[in-house]
Amino acid sequence: MRRALLCAAVGVLIVIAFAALWPGVLATHDPLQTDVRSALVPPSAEHIFGTDQSGRDVYSRVIFGAGRSLGIGLLATAIALVGGLIVGALAGVAPRPVEAVMMRINDILMAFPEFLVALVVVAVLGPGPVNIAIAVTLAAGPVYIRLARVQTRTLRGAEHVEAARILGVPPVRAFVRHVVPGVLGSLSVLATIGIGSSILAAAGLSFLGLGPSEPTPEWGLMLAGGRNVLGQAWWISVFPGIAITLTVVAATVVGRILRARTEGRRS
């Protein structure tokens, strides 16, 4: 059962990644082309997902929106992973007083919901896709910092690291070659789950009007665009909502199964 679930989740992610990399292959229309005569047309053979208020093809906009939504999520997760690795590893090797200060600050940030932190950051920096990526990165970073610090503390005392030091390997080289890869492996599994959370947070900020502006095809922005006509044209918001849900669920499933395997549980 779990294997079938993993295959289904990976299949969904492959399709979404293909749409993000080569949207022109899957799209049937220009996502920015307007046609007021075809406004609010329900799903049909010509427009699979219907059209929006400006007559733009919703299916093509969902396909082209995959690249922007997925790109923001991947970028934010990658930066949070690297930043968390650096800060967490430094905290793991720092003197106790320095480590205590660093982790208390980190604990304060973790006390707030990630979306609230991201919302505050965007309020300070201003709206825009770049600022959304920065906000999501800062909101997700504390989780990576804590895990990196714990893994660094654990691996520093591992037998193979001690053996390398006894053999005369310089401390910095031993740390880079034997500790960092182990910490990075743990963070990579966490990042698989974090991608879905980052995409969801970015879409939420775009829904609030803090991300890309019209007519950019972006899932969160498309959700917001259809909320006022939901009773008349449900398809404008439902289909990008389904795309977000499938992406987040698929990434979370893959991440949780990978984490179960790394922890030695039955897969």
Rank of each mutant, 00 (worst) to 15 (best):
G65E: 11
Q33L: 14
A27N: 11
G255E: 03
L116W: 13
G24R: 15
V161K: 06
R156F: 00
L187V: 01
P23C: 09
A94T: 05
L200F: 15
F64R: 12
A100Y: 00
P181R: 02
L210K: 01
L85K: 07
I242E: 11
T51C: 10
V189M: 05
F175G: 02
R259Q: 14
R3A: 14
F175S: 02
L75E: 12
V58T: 14
A133N: 10
G67S: 12
F175K: 04
S237T: 06
G71Q: 07
A78D: 09
W219P: 07
I242D: 10
G209I: 07
G264F: 11
A260F: 00
L74Q: 04
L116M: 15
T216N: 02
S237L: 02
P31F: 07
P113G: 13
A174N: 04
P142A: 14
A78Q: 08
R153T: 07
T262E: 14
R2W: 10
L210P: 02
G226C: 03
D35F: 09
L230G: 00
V253S: 01
L187T: 01
R256L: 14
P31D: 13
V229L: 13
P212N: 01
Q151P: 01
L5P: 11
A94D: 06
G220Y: 06
S198F: 03
A174L: 03
T247K: 05
V98T: 15
L90R: 08
P171F: 11
V101W: 07
A94F: 10
A66M: 12
T34I: 15
V36M: 15
P42C: 13
A163E: 07
A140D: 10
R153N: 05
I63W: 13
A66N: 12
A89P: 00
V180A: 08
N228S: 09
P23E: 14
L125S: 09
A251K: 03
G196M: 09
L109F: 15
A76D: 12
G182L: 11
F175P: 00
W22F: 15
T77G: 03
V183W: 06
R266D: 12
W234R: 01
R173Q: 11
G92D: 12
L81N: 02
V172Y: 10
W234A: 02
A66F: 08
P95Y: 05
V36N: 09
L258D: 04
R61P: 11
G65L: 06
I166M: 12
G168N: 09
P217K: 02
A224L: 03
